[in-house]
Design a protein around this nucleic acid. Structure first.
Lengths: 197, 197
DNA sequence: GTCTATAAACCGATAGAC
DNA sequence: GTCTATCGGTTTATAGAC
């Protein structure tokens, strides 16, 4: 667990993260992966028992490497301040906006993940962070259902960037709408202070 | 265009809508489709020039058949009332919550659609409805950016049900959160009246 | 409009040498 | 740890009979 993994194994996982994120599980072949890695297909089977195991390891690798930044935002701060909420929303928005590999794999799992993989995504990526996020909202917006509100905020962020290719060709679009800070500001203001009258 | 299409063609499209929605383009083979339709693969090529053309026709078929309900909600009502907004949000939420074929194909297109297909999705499904939705919000919530607000509401609805498999195993989950009317109510209240103090 | 038959390429996976 | 070679099966798509 803690000893350094094989360099080749890690290199393969960095590669498959991009390939699976871009094309999806079914559209990427072991041959594609081997060629991109400068290996033969047979060599892949030394590191991973089959294609599904390689996909699982890819998710594990991406989840682990992408959620630390998020965890730390909610970890260091024990108090329930609006600043902490804003900081968290902005951090999550930035990750979703900029890390296409992570966000595309996440969306693919939401579509095609088995119940077991869904459970792992929930436990490994969302559970702890979501629980703290909920507690924060309960303290800062006591009139709302914290679960529903936390979910709605996550849904806005994920949906905003997932929907971006459509959004950009709809009337009223501005470049500023793509900026994480603009979205985060609107979102926090909406939940905490209500509409400008 | 207006003459009745071949029965077999339509029957194939109803079938592929479900298959492509469930498994995605790459994971469904022409054999799968032919077997499910009680045909041989060769027969499919009489109706569609290749697999991509069949997929395109499937999207066209689904878009056309699913967006009429939505269009009519915003069409009949020329006035800008909160009731119209609520009615529209509820109608869209119900479609997303209940029509898995439509919503899964939509999510798959957002992930894998080419620029051309994305443009078609925007024009065929969203453009007119979104424009009216924006105008409604401009009248009812004048303090907000209507484009950003309309997008956020659509993102919440799409994200809420797309995120559902994770949401259900997170603390604070209640069955009521899955109900379209509960989500629609919260969403309209959030945008129009701000938080309960 | 659907069939049989088949081409040509690709798929995941394994055996065994080095 | 990576290779060569290969197996058995599947893929999209076409030719041509009915």
């Amino acid at each position: 667990m803690t000893q350094p993994q094989s360099d080749t194994r890690t290199r393969i996982l960095e590669l498959t993260a991009g390939l699976f994120a871009q094309l999806g599980f079914a559209a990427v072949s072991m041959r594609n992966i081997a060629n991109a890695a400068g290996l033969t297909p047979a060599a892949l089977y030394h590191h991973f028992s089959d294609k599904v195991a390689l996909y699982d390891a890819t998710l594990e690798h991406v989840y682990r490497s992408r959620t630390e930044a998020l965890r730390s935002v909610l970890d260091t701060n024990g108090q329930f301040s609006a600043d902490t909420l804003h900081e968290f929303v902005l951090a999550f928005t930035k990750i979703v906006a900029k890390d296409k590999v992570f966000s595309r794999l996440l969306h693919r799992e939401l579509l095609d993940g088995s119940a077991k993989r869904m459970e792992r995504l929930s436990a490994q990526v969302f559970h702890d962070t979501f629980t703290r996020f909920e507690a924060l909202l309960k303290a800062l917006a006591p009139g709302r259902d914290p679960h529903l509100t936390a979910n709605a905020m996550i849904a806005v962020i994920l949906g905003h960037y997932g929907f971006a290719p459509i959004r950009r060709s709809l009337p009223g679009y501005m470049k500023a709408h793509d900026r994480p800070d603009v979205l985060a500001n609107q979102l926090v203001q909406l939940v905490l202070t209500g509409p400008k009258q």
